[in-house]
Amino acid sequence: MIAERMRALDPSDARPRATLRLMFPATEDAVRAGLLHCRRAMRTAGMCTDLTGRAEIVLAEALNNITEHGRPHGQTGWISLRCDLCQAGLRVVITDRCRPLPQDLLALSGDMRPMPGNLDLADLPEGGFGWHLIRLLTHDLACKHEAFGNRLCFLVPRNPGKD
């Protein structure tokens, strides 16, 4: 089972700070299991429902992007996830040993916000929401392709104002 491959540090800590580390294969099923594990850990660490909800959306989109775009043909890469609960919110570092994400996904500027407006039904977008959600829900977003793979960092802020 995927879950048995995970290693997690107990986030329960006398101090307000908590850390969660997970490693899992870059597959959709493993990502789902990892997200459920994160949700439980975030609740155990005392994160509020709002922050937990925003973090789950961002983590899902970031991890799904890796499984969709970063996996070498016929191989399963590995994803390493670290979440630190801090004063400002949840600080996340995701590293993978997959191939570089496509440049259009890495472009951190520009507005990918889907604006359906008066589009015809047939023209409604069925995708392209993922990075849009990540940008809207994070601060300090940075992504680098390094020798070992990709490294994506961001903060899910504790007090983002109204979204």
């Binding site: 899902a60 995708g127 929401f129």
Partner: peptide, 20 residues
């Protein structure tokens, strides 16, 4: 209690399939 962009895309696809 949770939907991601793939799930959202699938709901849009269903809407298109059903038509006006």
């Amino acid at each position: 209690d949770f939907i991601d962009s793939s799930g959202l895309g699938s709901i849009v696809a269903v809407m298109k399939h059903l038509g006006r």
